[in-house]
Design a protein around this nucleic acid. Structure first.
Lengths: 225, 225
DNA sequence: ATATCGTTCAAACGAATAATTGAACGATCT
DNA sequence: AGATCGTTCAATTATTCGTTTGAACGATAT
């Protein structure tokens, strides 16, 4: 009987955050911002929406406290306000995966034979990096690598992978990672590497999850900040 | 370049779950269902909405895979589809607390002097229960206790607390819990008990969080199921 | 200053969502 | 069968949300 009014206010605030997440474009914007700071124009382009539209969605996210922004010359750079946002997205994903059969289908259909590729967990990777028994490969585009990457990772964007196979060890196991659980780059990379006779596996997570877990990330050189 | 279409579908599914959460009434309905199975009429009453309205909200939640329902005679009983829903709500709460200043104010204002009451963590409680050094007190209404409660807990609804102080130990520490982090019952109970000279603290979480963590819960007698 | 470029604002329209009402449905009891 | 009670459905209205358009703003660069 006690908590009528303030409780309402509380739920209203929680709902405000949920509302901010409740649009596919905004979720995609967040995923891109999870890779690092981005200008409005850039995320608009990555998400295939108009600049004006992206701008409004980003402002909505900012009002909800999910992202923050700063000005850098002509550009306004947006970023996640908090790594906990990645955790929230992971929880959302977990529910969607568990309860919605369709997602399962999409995942297992498009991200083919997911299990066959035996993903490596974060904890495993940490161990293997310590004893030096793996080579860590970041297959994202060069600019995203520049915005932050895992320690000891080498960067060969997926598109250049075939040309640059010589840079990779033939015997040692290779662990590839990219943006996150639903980014296809590392799937494709592992498949390609295996076909060429390399020993390759995927990291289960991407950079944002790694960072959200509090593990060290090589930050960008503080150039234009 | 690779993941245009299926990615969209994925984000659309995630957004569907977020949309289901994006209404304060639905969040409140979920909180009540987190206590255990409830009829439409009952959650409508608890949430102060009309039955028809609650029914529609509940169906929306069901479509999103967040809750499930079954028929029991005249009644339709709803429950959470998955304990992971509690985890998702916790993530939502954590973001809202961190990023929205207003929630902080509400919390520290209404749930007064939260820190002074030194909440007990789940892990702590498990340890203390093992060595038998605490009495565990459930201050929720009797019917909610009946729908599920922590092992070894005794039930004294908050409204009866003053009348039934004799049932509580004077020396041993008492740990009180209720519905969850934003339920006031345990705050009030601890304050009241301390004023009477009892040694009392709050459990940090409520029943739903306990259950979601995979810890054992005394289930209701399978009477009308 | 003027031009240019990235971002935001304001207005407008169509689409989706929420709450209310009263009727319909389903199960139980007499 | 008929009555009753809890739940759902269908239709309505008010409100909110999403996208587009074109203008306005702010920070360079010439």
């Amino acid at each position: 009987m006690s908590s009528a009014n303030p409780k309402q206010a509380l739920f209203a605030q929680f709902a405000a955050v949920a509302k901010a997440l409740a649009h596919e474009h905004r979720l995609e914007l967040i995923e891109h911002l999870a890779q690092g700071e981005r200008s409005v124009e850039r995320v608009a382009e990555l998400s295939h929406v108009s600049v004006a539209n992206a701008s409004q969605h980003l402002q909505r996210l900012r009002r909800a406290g999910l992202v923050a922004s700063r000005r850098d010359g002509k550009h306004v750079l947006y970023r996640l306000a908090d790594d906990a946002v990645v955790t929230l997205l992971a929880a959302l994903r977990s529910i969607a995966e568990r309860s919605l059969g369709e997602v399962e289908k999409v995942v297992s259909g498009y991200f083919r034979r997911r299990d066959e590729l035996e993903p490596v967990s974060r904890a495993d990777l940490v161990r293997r990096l310590k004893d030096g028994s793996v080579t860590l490969l970041d297959v994202r585009p060069e600019d995203e690598f520049g915005l932050g990457h895992l320690p000891d990772a080498i960067n060969i964007p997926f598109r250049e992978l075939e040309k640059r196979l010589a840079e990779l060890p033939k015997r040692r196991e290779i662990v590839a990672y990219c943006r996150g659980p639903y980014c296809v780059l590392s799937f494709e990379a592992v498949a390609a590497l295996r076909q060429r006779g390399f020993k390759a596996r995927r990291l289960e997570d991407g950079l944002p999850e790694w960072r959200a877990a509090g593990l060290p990330v090589i930050a960008p050189a503080p150039g234009r900040g």
